[in-house]
Nucleic acid binder design. Structure first.
Lengths: 175, 175
DNA sequence: ACCATAGGTTCAATGAACGAACTCATGCGA
DNA sequence: TCGCATGAGTTCGTTCATTGAACCTATGGT
């Protein structure tokens, strides 16, 4: 992409990471993938992203090995995009980014919380469970809405996310 | 900035974070601030960023409360940009981003390592010290070059970074 | 035969990034 | 005092990316 030309020079792992996930929209797509969004249409309506940009980003994330595109239905042919293991390893980054915003940005009311699936307690700094002491990986995290989240959103993906949902498991969008 | 119009709708802490640090160059500027870069000129030569973009980013990071601009010399007037506490709290994000790239991107040879200043061991997942078990904050991290890093870089900032350097402490660029 | 749906691609208009040149305040050496 | 150098920007024309609307294709349903 475009970041490449300059960033590649940097010879730094952070710069290399940003080459892959640093473009506009990219990390939001990855976030949605953690939330269980898998289909083109669902990314589209949930993010409000232009179609051309979504297609480009899905393709580059697939090439980078973050997402895997796989056919889940033959006729009509339908593909879904699922996080690979490498993609799922982005969870600490995404979690700390969200935690940072919750704690350090003005006027943030935190709309959702991340809970340890095993015990239900809210994850603390560095994604640790304060009760168990475990560092919790994405598959053991439950995303739960909090009061203040719009109870009647306009798109089916947001509606599906009104109920607690385990990360990485597919979201049942069509009720 | 430009991301705002769409991202603001998202009512999600990750989206809010990306509003502040999600633009091109922004996280590399923050990374350099952790490395001890403080002056306009040094950001410029180390990043190879267009001057206008750098000026815009420094200003928006200051407004967001990530960087503090402060006068370190009256005549001629000279300012430096230093991470605030809120800015320094971005360390886990940056660290996990770098860790992710080191572990999951093709053909990454890791050019630098992050060590726990107290004991010298290399930091593990989520920025924990495997020896002490402590979660290490940015101020207790030493950035150390590894073999393979260009031994004779073209700019003084990269030259200064050839020696181990504690994060957040000012970099002595002029030898 | 007609419409709907999922997942795209194409295209003109807009906006952001780029890089070179210019500005301005100051210090310094001759 | 003149002239040059330095740091920290701003200005501006060109290039590149993003946007949103329209179009396309394959299939299924009625």
């Amino acid at each position: 992409m475009a970041l490449g030309k300059d960033y590649a020079q940097q010879h730094c792992s952070i710069a290399r990471a940003l080459e892959v996930v640093g473009e506009r929209w990219t990390l939001l797509i990855v976030r949605d993938a953690f939330y269980g969004v898998r289909r083109y249409k669902d990314f589209l309506v949930h993010l409000g992203i232009p179609r051309a940009v979504l297609a480009a980003r899905l393709q580059s994330l697939e090439q980078a090995g973050v997402l895997e595109k796989r056919r889940y239905q033959q006729a009509p042919p339908r593909d879904e995009y699922v996080l690979t293991d490498a993609g799922a390893a982005l969870w600490p980054t995404l979690f700390s980014l969200g935690t940072w915003a919750s704690g350090h940005l003005e006027g943030m009311d935190v709309p959702r919380s991340f809970l340890h699936a095993a015990c239900g307690s809210e994850l603390g700094a560095y994604g640790q469970c304060p009760a168990c002491g475990d560092v919790v990986t994405a598959g053991d995290v439950v995303l739960a809405p909090r009061p203040g989240l719009d109870p009647n959103p306009g798109n089916p993906v947001s509606r599906a996310l009104l109920e607690p949902h385990r990360l990485l498991t597919p979201l049942d969008v069509d009720r």
